[in-house]
Design a protein around this nucleic acid. Structure first.
Lengths: 287, 287
DNA sequence: GCCTTCGTGCAAATTATTTTCTTAGATCGT
DNA sequence: ACGATCTAAGAAAATAATTTGCACGAAGGC
């Protein structure tokens, strides 16, 4: 599916010549996408056939297939090799943020645990009451968004960013409810406490967090969000976007689950959120 | 820069044959990126040279250059032609949401008004107090996020999603302050009222909204977010992501403006948000 | 009505890519 | 250590793709 992933896997097994080609891909990527097989070969000091074989090895049909695949993943996948924005000019900063956000989405997509998502969706759709927890500005936004999305499908949900309230709510919850907690770092000790309490009360819990973290360990279902180091601690920016996308995925799936009668399209569901007022003037219910 | 933009511009001036080629690009894109010039030509019922000329017309050096450019924009830019998710399977829904989000970012980037952003940043950085307004779940999240981002840089900011409070706050604001309002639809009448009041009091206002809308008209500076129809009304999902990215761009620029001493990287600024506790255990301040 | 311009395809020329064949070097068992 | 076997990689040939040059025909202006 994605060349750079394949390249990573094969890396060890490549020969010297092939490694030289790989290096060019990684270092002078701009050259590589635009070069012909001959140019690429001569830059790597190998013969064109070697390049062809290299492409085949990476799972492509031919050199041109390789170039297409390369160009495709490149736009998003490669940018993380250039971590810093070029300058503080408005345009550069904008491009940097957009790219990083797209990249975060790309990485999220690649690392999604579909089975965990399905389990979570099942529980959410079946719950009598949903409690969404998150603190610290970023995760509290996520908890609020969860409420913003799910109440529209007729689900009963509340959210809280207050640690004490979270504990009390967890204590009030029942086994037919569900408790969803978000933590970017996975180290929100208070959330862990709420989850632990819920476990004692047999209330199912869903964590949206880093896998392997204390929060993940305390939850009955973990939907992992594992963005590579660097994207994580120092970049709430892109992490936040990834979480939001995950939320959208969860909500859409829940919507399909709880409103199966809304025939084939999500559009129908969304149309329900639009109200007509002032004659033809369409107004979004939920600006 | 981007083929589809060029294609849009040239569309009217294309000849019959060239239009047939363009149609294939738009309709059977998967075929187009993988096809050779001969295959593409025969599918469009034209000769290979016509395809070459078509590529040149679109600003490419050659057919292969064209293919690379195509594949590059493609991954993000083209997906909006396939508006519906393939199925309700978890994987398909996930892919659909990710793609649409990336696409929204792509479109946002393309339509950014850098001059307006710079004006807005200038005002925000210079303001003595910032009021962030937004209602309806989506825009209120944006207003909250604005606060979440900007207070970290030492700025004085409050946010409100309550129409009455917004009016009162606008009445309390001074000309050295700034009032930022978000509205996805641009038709939040109450926000317009707050902006109008602010104008009477000579309080500068910044709108994050659709250009040409009532909210935009009422603001002193408008940072337009114009995502094409369809992305807009029925898809708060992707619109929200675009707004969030815009927020990140604004905040980063404001950060550079108010903390010029934080030498070259935003990373430094972000490190200030990390606190060390439990020995080596890094904890994000703002989970 | 003729001339110009533009779009187009054909065929030839050029260029790029792949296949085939061959050799050099490495690996491994005896 | 020697030979057998395997693998990597280039040279050259074959094939395929792409571009160029040219010519023809249609549309539109003088």
């Amino acid at each position: 599916m994605d060349i750079f992933a394949t390249l990573q896997e094969e890396k060890g097994r490549l020969s010297q010549s092939e490694n030289r080609i790989a290096d060019i891909l990684l270092n002078d990527f701009e050259f590589a996408v635009n070069a012909s097989i001959i140019e690429l070969a001569s830059k790597a000091d190998v013969s064109p056939p070697t390049v062809t074989r290299f492409c085949r090895r990476l799972g492509c049909d031919s050199f041109s297939d390789f170039k297409v695949q390369l160009a495709r993943t490149a736009y998003i996948g490669m940018r993380y090799l250039k971590p810093e924005p070029k300058s503080r000019e408005t345009g550069d900063v904008a491009q940097d943020i957009i790219t990083k956000s797209q990249n975060a989405l790309f990485l999220l997509h690649r690392s999604l645990d579909l089975a965990a998502i399905e389990q979570a969706v099942e529980r959410i759709a079946a719950a009598e009451m949903i409690y969404a927890f998150g603190s610290g500005g970023n995760s509290s936004m996520i908890a609020g968004e969860l409420q913003n999305r799910l109440f529209r499908y007729g689900l009963r949900i509340t959210s809280s960013s207050d640690h004490s309230m979270q504990l009390m709510m967890a204590a009030a919850a029942r086994p037919t409810d569900v408790l969803i907690g978000s933590s970017f770092s996975g180290r929100n000790a208070e959330l862990v406490r709420a989850f632990t309490l819920a476990r004692e009360l047999k209330v199912p819990t869903i964590a949206l967090t880093q896998s392997g973290s204390p929060v993940a360990a305390a939850a009955s279902i973990t939907v992992p969000v594992d963005l590579p180091e660097g994207n994580n601690i120092y970049r709430p920016t892109s992490t936040r976007i990834a979480y939001l996308a995950l939320l959208d995925i969860l909500s859409s799936l829940v919507a399909y689950r709880v409103q199966p009668q809304a025939t084939t399209t999500l559009r129908r569901i969304k149309q329900q959120l639009v109200t007509h007022r002032d004659g033809d003037d369409r107004q979004l219910l939920g600006d």
